[in-house]
Design a protein around this nucleic acid. Sequence first.
RNA 1: GCGGCGUUAGCUCAGCUGGAUAGAGUGUUUGGCUACGAACCAAAAGGGCGGGGGUUCGAAUCCCUUACGCCGUGCCA
Length: 583
Amino acid sequence: MLNLKKNTASAIAALIAEKYPAATLSAEEILDMLEYPPDKAMGDLALPCFRLSKSLRRSPMEIAKTLAEGISLPELASVEVQGGYLNFRVNGVAFAGRVVREIAEKGETYGSPMCGEGKTVVLDYSSPNVAKPFHIGHLGTTVIGHSLKLLHEFAGYKCVGINYLGDWGTQFGKLIVAYKKWDDKAAVEEKGVDELVALYVRINNEIKAEEDASAAASAEGVKSSPLADAARAEFKKLEEGNEENIALWKWFVAVSLEEYEKTYRQLGITFDSYKGESFYTDKMPAQVQRLRDSGLLKIDDGASIVDLEPYGMPPCLILKRDGSTLYPTRDIAAAVYRKGTYGFDKAIYVTSAAQSLHFAQWFKVVEMMGYDWYDKLVHVPYGTVSINGAKLATRTGNVILLKDLFAEAISRVYDITKEKHPDPAECADIAEKVGVGAIVFYYLSNNRMRDINFMMEDALSFDGNTGPYVQYTYARTCSVLEKADGAVAMTDAALGEREMELAKALSRFPERVEAALAEYEPSLITRYILDLCAAYNGFYHDCSILSCEDASVKQSRIALTAATRRVLKTALHLICMQSPEKI
RNA sequence: GCGGCGUUAGCUCAGCUGGAUAGAGUGUUUGGCUACGAACCAAAAGGGCGGGGGUUCGAAUCCCUUACGCCGUGCCA
């Protein structure tokens, strides 16, 4: 459709130049004005002439009429004037033939904008906090981030996926205290991260109890907690390189990661780097020094800040009153390191929209520090998740662990699948791909900025606009093609409305990929997949394919099916979904 | 207080840089498997886009204002 738009636009631009020599309208401007009519009865492409009437000094109707008489393009079957609109109808057979041929020729690269050749992009996403539950709050950054990585790879970028693990901080002091006090190696080895989470929750509760008790006992209401003091001491030892604590810390990280990996494996996600927060501790002083040398650092109320008043933002905190570093400090150090290591052309950070100010602040600080790549930093925010309208909260138990969510989805799919496929191993394989796919599809259906109210019933539903529906459609194309044989090229047989709708849907893939990349919006691909599936299923329902008696028509229909399968597979991949041939 | 984001059918959401009677899914009612997979297709009912102004030939889309909700706003990350 994009090529068609471009050709039509340049033809119209040429025509305008001829008919209205005084006007200067480029083909690009015309391209911008071209749109798809709301109703296919009107045509396949339309040019509203209202805006033209100003520069051409003629009524829209008159312009439309003049243009309609002058235009002729092999791709266009007819041109019609309706109101102030110029409506084009494409030459169906030629158009569909070209689309299907292009898909067959380009194969898995069909739809790629190829704009990333020779460029590198690093993507920072998922980034769970070690020894804390990996729950649906992490689903957004994980699947949006990975989808963006796949989209960039598709466009030819060299991508570096970074899992910036939250593997440092005072929580490790608490964990070490709790472990030494209450736990043993066997329990952690057996229960993994769940045991660590339990320890963490327990010590936090006890610290709170101690604080409350001390506040009640003291006349001034001063809070104190021996456990909290012990935790601080253990973390200090960890920072100073105490061997026992280092070993424990490494172990906790490994245990947590092992479990996260299971979930990543189900999602088909791999990272190129797991350098977490701990990695950057020794890289911060140099940046702090640079800030100080350039006179950007100001002491305010004891803390070291960068004033962002001129930019309408609150100050960016670099060092606490006690001299220790903060979140922005580490992010700046990490960005500098990554620029040096990967030489990125773009660095994408996928985090909750709640962190928007934080990113705007340290991006600005990077600019003020004189790093000329400050404009390569991109924050991709997304809305927050709630469950049945309630905020996520580990304390009240209002969380859904990703592993539990996936297990539930897989089990539900398994129950349906086993009726269709006798082989248990095959069923298990399908159930995992469809179950996990259902969750991913559900999550990536909405604009990323919209807050999601996670509803189990919807996420695990199999009918309508769901993951199982699109995978079902894919399996359907596979099933047809498995039974078909012979050539799969379009013939010159006439095409019905269903076939044309399908061809048009296929042709729109490249422009949707471009938009998804430009807006960092995977849901555009999800929406596209639904459009394509609707077009294919309608076609499938109305047009017999394998049993079609006209050999020429049959061949075209098989070719359309093959093209659909190809595009669906590519599109599903871009939103982190598998495409099993049977479900 | 200031700033960001959101507000579209009963519910969950699309609606591109303003353009032709506002679209899906779900739910409700109903029709279609002796058909290439019914995890499918199709029909009906259902909103005038939170409220109010404005710009425009034309506004769910742009501007102003107002209400409600979420988030952020200095030593957590």
